[in-house]
Design a protein around this nucleic acid. Structure first.
Ligand code: ATP
Length: 718
DNA sequence: AGAATTGTCATTTTT
DNA sequence: TGACAATTCT
């Protein structure tokens, strides 16, 4: 008789993972012997994320059920990518794995157990704008005379309140640290904060901070729930640990309190979220908090050339507060990074895009290049240039699809159907009606919010005034039509968009009402994939990157969705990498940001931001800056201080000059050509530069084609 | 009083 | 764009 040895499924997947060859000697122990508490503290590109990914695969491979693994990432996009990577390692999608941001995981748990702490499973999530509006109402309700004394505006108040909760400190301390000039107002600010908390509770609404703090409260006050969850999560893995705050660290601690299996990876030099109360100390204190924590260090950088690493290291070396970390490039030599001064922001943009064209002609793909910037609005000129040349790009950062006013209008109507107590959503919906302003809307909203469900609310008569009654009737018509379209979310949204009342509002209010109506239709199309209202609203409020760009289906599809140039804020570029990276606007006040310089430790954080940005590049790094700024009054700009921290031997400078016909080179959307010649470098017709010189094309033809989902919707907006 | 309109201003980073 | 303050309209 013959023998046949069955392998057993034991593990999860169908595929053998080659841990030996796909991990180096430093990574392997972290993946295979990572039981207990373990911290991987290592520099950029050293394979930290790879360790986490392989660790998840390894655990599944060794029989740990997916639902017993909790993977916490910084963005939902990162979570999706890592799960996708795990899937391709195993050959099977790990269904049931808990992977997501702290916020989305918290949301999930709170929907399950919120009832133990005063929240139904249908609580609403307030975005930044809703939160600001509610705070505005609180200030009004408290009759604080914000004009007489210098009192912070709603968004500053929100940031104060938010920071206080994320850092878990007192109001007094926040003000001392962030806004000392508001210290005399501390009592009033506290009153606003208290009322804000109370109102949210009454409205069954949570802001982003609540998701974290209320989860922690749940875990602290309800030990049996903590135990249940801590028992479930046999393994917890946290990426980007340097950017977690104390609340998040406490959550991890609580959830790991039974099995004590925590793998945290991070790099103190890449901590860039201190404005959100991220605590580098979470990393530094990890060994103290988790007894017997193992430490792993990774010292090989697999991403960048030695030349790029040298530049990143030169700059970060100027920070006093940091761990020195060894980092050796595994990749061979490449070009020196290029430093490119331009006369103006538009010339800078022109250079970036023409350099891209050159690389494209040499065989580079769109998706291998990224433009990174400190602030969303810095990207305008580059976007403009890309649009003109018809280069496909994807925009990350800045305003998102789901944050657009009309999209939020539509969502507000859905929100009150999910949670009738959601006064902010009522207000938003009501204010679309002519004759209803903030005051009356809030009056009506607060009244109907007391009713028990949406059907009852829509039938009610919450107001007596004649004008108000007319407005309410409009809302009633819209809501009734939407309710009749239940249960399809997409149909409900179409009923909203198709209503005469909303049409009239949009057409009155916005010249581009047609586009906005299209956006609502896109929202409906997006909603097709959901049949649960709660899941749909969660997706919309929590997976912001999902909505960062929604393609218009009516436009011809690009060759490949993946293959676009990326424009991104540095913050959103964390953890990613590209063959070629352009860091733009490296000018004084631009990057480092002028604002950051006033803050305690601001410059060091900006330097870490530069470190993150430059270490995104694999092969080519371009550091560009305009030497002037402004359009009406042109001012000279100094280059960024970071550039002066790079030794001359570590970069190559590129001088720009114009080729082609100067005369054609004037109009940027009608902006006078004269001013360009004023600042032109044009050091005469010298041909024998000893530095490389790039000759810029005269400006090409403008193509008036707005890209969906982008910051700029139309060239005319410039 | 509260709604609507107009003008002026600047603009970090995000779940 | 959008947040705000100042202004006029109902
Ligand atoms: N052992 C390895 N062999 C080959 N390539 C590797 C190895 N480990 C990591 N890499 C590659 O190096 C690059 C960086 O890895 P990864 O993103 O995991 O690093 P990281 O430490 O998370 O970086 P960062 O902190 O900068 O985001 C990736 O392209 C990855 O595929």
């Amino acid at each position: 008789m013959k023998e046949f040895v069955l392998q057993g499924s034991g593990g999860f997947g169908t595929r053998q993972i080659d841990y030996q060859n796909e991990l180096n000697d430093e990574q392997r122990p972290a993946v295979m012997e990572g039981d207990g508490a373990a911290l991987v503290l290592a520099g950029a590109g050293s394979g930290k994320t790879r360790v986490i990914t392989y660790r998840v695969a390894w655990l599944l491979d060794h029989g740990i059920p997916p639902e017993r693994i909790l993977l916490l990432t910084f963005t939902n996009k990162a979570a999706r990518e890592m799960v996708g990577r795990v899937e391709s390692l195993l050959g099977v999608y790990p269904h049931g794995l808990w992977a997501g941001t702290f916020h989305s995981i918290a949301n999930r748990i709170l929907r399950m157990y919120g009832s133990h702490i005063g929240y139904g499973s249908n609580f609403s999530i307030l975005d930044e704008e809703d939160a600001n509006d509610l705070i505005k109402l609180c200030v009004k309700q408290l009759k604080i005379d914000s004009a007489a004394k210098r009192f912070p505006g709603a968004s500053v108040l929100k940031s104060i309140i938010s920071y206080r909760r994320n850092a878990a400190i007192t109001m007094q301390m926040v003000l001392e640290r962030k806004h000392p000039h508001f210290l005399p107002q501390v009592a009033d600010i506290q009153r606003v904060s208290d009322l804000y908390e109370q109102q949210k509770q009454e409205q069954q609404a949570m802001d982003f901070d609540d998701l974290l703090t209320i989860l922690l409260r749940l875990l602290t006050e309800q030990p049996h729930i903590k135990e249940k969850l801590a028992n479930q999560f046999a393994y917890i893995l946290v990426d980007e640990f340097q950017d977690t705050n104390v609340i998040q660290a406490d959550i991890v601690h609580a959830l790991s309190s039974i099995h004590n299996n925590v793998l945290a990876v991070g790099d103190d030099a890449q901590s860039i979220y201190s404005f959100r109360a991220a605590e580098i100390r979470n990393i530094l204190d990890f060994p103290r908090r988790y007894n017997d924590a193992k430490m792993f260090r990774l010292v090989t950088n697999y991403r960048s050339t030695p030349q790029i690493l040298a530049v990143a290291n030169s700059v970060i070396a100027n920070n006093d507060n940091q761990f020195a970390k060894e980092l050796v490039a595994a990749v061979g030599d490449g070009d020196l990074p290029y430093m490119v001064p331009a006369n103006s922001a538009s010339q800078e943009a022109q250079f970036v895009v023409e350099q891209m064209t050159t690389l494209l002609n040499q065989g580079a793909s769109y998706g291998s290049m990224a433009v990174l910037f400190r602030a969303a609005y810095h990207s305008q000129q580059v976007e403009f240039e890309l649009m003109k040349r018809g280069i496909p790009y994807e925009y990350r950062g800045g305003m998102k699809f789901f944050e657009r006013a009309h999209v939020k209008d539509a969502l507000a109507h859905l929100r009150v159907m999910q949670n009738v107590k959601d006064v902010m959503a009522w207000n938003r919906a009501l204010m679309l009606q002519p004759g209803l302003g903030l005051t009356t809307a809030n009056k009506i909203g607060s009244t109907v919010a007391r009713l028990s469900d949406i059907d009852e609310a829509v039938k009610s008569t919450p107001t007596t005034g004649a004008k108000a009654q007319q407005g309410w009737a409009g809302t009633q018509r819209i809501m009734t039509a939407m309710l009749a379209a239940r249960p399809s979310i997409a149909d409900m949204l179409r009923a909203f968009a198709g209503s005469d009342d909303y049409h009239a509002y949009l057409e009155n209010e916005y010249p581009n009402w047609q586009e906005r109506l299209d956006d609502v239709e896109q929202l409906a199309a997006f909603a097709e994939q959901y049949d649960d209202l709660s899941a749909f609203l969660d997706a919309v409020s929590l997976t912001a990157d999902f909505g960062a760009r929604v393609d218009d289906p009516s436009k011809p599809k690009r060759e490949s969705e993946e293959d676009s140039v990326i424009l991104s804020t540095i913050h959103q570029a964390k953890g990613l990498e590209w063959e070629t990276v352009f860091i733009i606007n490296l000018s004084e006040g631009g990057f480092p940001s002028g604002r950051a310089m006033d803050e305690e430790g601001g410059l060091e954080e900006e330097r870490r931001l530069f470190y993150v940005a430059s270490t995104r590049a694999r092969q080519k790094l371009f550091l560009t800056y305009p030497i002037t700024a402004g359009y009406e009054h042109i001012e000279l700009r100094q280059p960024s201080i970071f550039l002066s921290e790079i030794p001359k031997s570590q970069y190559e400078e590129i001088k720009l000059r114009y080729g082609g016909d100067w005369a054609n080179n004037s109009g940027y959307g009608g902006g006078g050509g004269g001013r360009q010649s004023k600042v032109a470098v044009a050091r005469g017709g010298v041909d024998d530069w000893d530095e490389p010189t790039i000759v810029l094309d005269p400006v090409g033809e403008a193509i008036n084609r707005p890209m969906p989902g982008s910051f700029l919707r139309d060239l005319n907006e410039l």
